[in-house]
Design a protein around this nucleic acid. Sequence first.
DNA 1: CACATAAGTTTCTCCTGTAAACATAGAGGG
DNA 2: CCCTCTATGTTTACAGGAGAAACTTATGTG
Lengths: 202, 202
Amino acid sequence: MSETKDRPYHHGDLRRALIDTALAMLAAEQNWTFTLREVARRAGVSHAAPYKHFRDREMLLRELARIGFIRLGESLSGAMSPNMPSTRAQFMAAAQACIGFACQNPGLYRLMFSSDADKTIDPPLHDAAMSTFGILLGLLERGQRDQSFRPVSVSALAAASWAQVHGLAMLTISHQLLEETVEPEPVLAALDVLLDGMCYTD
Amino acid sequence: MSETKDRPYHHGDLRRALIDTALAMLAAEQNWTFTLREVARRAGVSHAAPYKHFRDREMLLRELARIGFIRLGESLSGAMSPNMPSTRAQFMAAAQACIGFACQNPGLYRLMFSSDADKTIDPPLHDAAMSTFGILLGLLERGQRDQSFRPVSVSALAAASWAQVHGLAMLTISHQLLEETVEPEPVLAALDVLLDGMCYTD
DNA sequence: CACATAAGTTTCTCCTGTAAACATAGAGGG
DNA sequence: CCCTCTATGTTTACAGGAGAAACTTATGTG
């Protein structure tokens, strides 16, 4: 049921195909209009076919966002995997990975944090987001245990770093981070400023 | 031409009325669907009337965003007006004002930073955003002159604080800032973490 | 006072989301 | 081996939005 070239009538795995098509569209366009009919069109099926797999348009969007959070989590874990010199360096790597992820998938990243991806009505999406957030929490707790980060409440550290990194990512993909400088300098410098407030001694 | 109660045919100042109606809708709903026809309906005119004042839907959205930036700038200026003990305190007040503005106008705030409000094709909007951003820059430069903030490059300080405050605002209005604590504690604590990295001695 | 024009309205086309009815392939029971 | 059930398609239909075009009504100016 995999590669019969002539889509006879039943697609085989339309659900997966729709998700892949939608992800591709999201990756291609910063534009981000995303009509369900266009997804169906590009997947080569009728415009009503998606409704056999997703209750409505937003359900597909939330599934895409869920996949996005999983991928982001993988990026974060991957970025800080090796034995790095310091927890601070690990944080730096994870933050850059997050911003890099946003730059490479701006449409998906926007979706993940848009009101279309309502986590309060979608437990799997909520869990995926929390799981990715947990990676950050783990890093912060580790940093406090090994005396890298100051003993502020973890929720304060988490809020600060989550907001900072997310804010940098959003501003970067919106090109609102100072027009004159296109280089990543201000991003790195901004992260250093934050880390100076988080770490014991710089 | 101001308050003829019976809208006879010509509205008087439909442009203003449309903006006000749209702002009211934005304030009321977190939902943020915003159809131009609905605005026209609530303003009591036909659905094509708005096109006499705005080339398309997005032009109205950008005008709303522009007004939003102006109002945000007023909030910021107002919050740090009196003679405060320290530049750090001024920064704290401005940051809280920004987050408070976002909480009171979540729809408008989202619009201001959404891709619908494309600053690269709308000079007046761009100017308004830059003007508000300039308030932050001014505060940072003042803080460096009076030795409150460390002599890092201003663009680094600006990126850090802009991203942090914007990130906190977005996460707050999305209720993504830790589910268990509804209080503003983590926000204030997060700002303190940032300020510890920006200031010389706490 | 005639009339050009600004500012409304109606009408139209194309698009979207979504529901309902219909069609078909593949699986399972007699 | 055939009949039917069901999952997964398709077609058709409808409500609603964006925007263009053509029409209408005030309004201000020669």
